[in-house]
Design a protein around this nucleic acid. Structure first.
Length: 263
DNA sequence: ATGGTAGCGCTGCTA
């Protein structure tokens, strides 16, 4: 199974590129973030035409997450376990069973600035994600949680750690919250394939032309349960797709990343 | 140099 995650920074603006990329990369499952649209506007038929079932959770101009699957999509649910859908203000999580794997697409809150209210909410959100996993997952289950975590797991996952002094995405509490997910049995699939490789960035700031300067961060992660960790065969950040593929629109500020797993 | 760009949507917020 080839499973991908891509923060598209507006699905409306990126639909053409995404369709191109689906034909090119042929993923079986795709987790999307920042669709920035309502469920009513979600282009279900465009994906059906390419052979993908879909589940989306969005309510307007911010956030919005989706799962596309060409290997089946069942039991879709939005938000955290037990959370009433109508009470969710920010659409940041959708889960479904795809080809025998429980897949979750997450868009973790950005956090804005360390010690801000939004930062505390980010840590709280990651805690709720952990609680969801504990409540719903058996130890031997095939689970993939992927998306934009807005956390760089280690210093080598940013272009220059000295530039991030006191910044979000690299702070100890954020990284500890990520490690809490790993303590639940999730494994960073990229580090299975590339234990020693630096510079596997998935996001570059639009401002200051950071992409072309190689100044990025690895914040888009594919976390797999231990049952799958030994079966990860390949992983890639598709930087070509971050270049724009020759269309008239700019690319997303994130590149798609994917892993191949024997399932 | 407290910058820079992108998206949404029409004013300033979010990233």
């Amino acid at each position: 199974m080839r499973i991908a995650t891509w923060n598209v920074n507006s699905l409306k603006a990126r639909l053409g590129k995404l369709e191109e990329w689906l034909s090119c990369a042929e993923p079986d499952v795709v987790c999307l973030q920042e669709t920035k649209m309502s469920d009513a506007a979600f282009p279900t038929m465009a994906f059906t035409a390419l052979g993908y079932e879909s589940a989306h959770h969005g309510n307007g101009r911010w956030n919005g997450v989706a799962i596309l699957s060409r290997v089946g999509l069942e039991e879709a649910r939005v938000g955290f376990w037990g959370e009433p859908a109508e009470s969710i203000e920010e659409c940041r999580m959708v889960t479904a069973i795809c080809g025998g794997v429980r897949v979750t697409s997450v868009y973790v809150p950005n956090g804005r600035a360390v010690a801000s209210e939004q930062y505390d909410l980010k840590l709280e959100w990651l805690g709720r994600l952990r609680d969801d996993l504990v409540a719903t997952t058996a130890a031997d289950e095939a689970v993939v949680v992927c998306g934009d975590f807005n956390v760089a797991p280690e210093d080598r996952d940013v272009w220059d750690i000295s530039q991030f002094l006191g910044a979000t995405h690299v702070s100890k509490p954020e990284r500890a919250a990520l490690r809490e997910l790993e303590a639940c049995g999730l494994v960073d699939a990229f580090r299975v394939v590339y234990p020693e490789v630096d510079g596997l960035y998935s996001w570059w700031d639009y401002r200051a032309g950071d992409f072309h300067k190689g100044r990025g961060m690895r914040i888009d992660l594919v976390l797999v349960s231990r049952a799958l960790a030994g079966r990860v065969r390949y992983a890639l950040v598709d930087r070509e797709a971050r270049k724009g593929m020759g269309s008239d629109r700019p690319p997303s500020d994130h590149a798609p990343v994917f892993v191949d797993i024997d399932t």
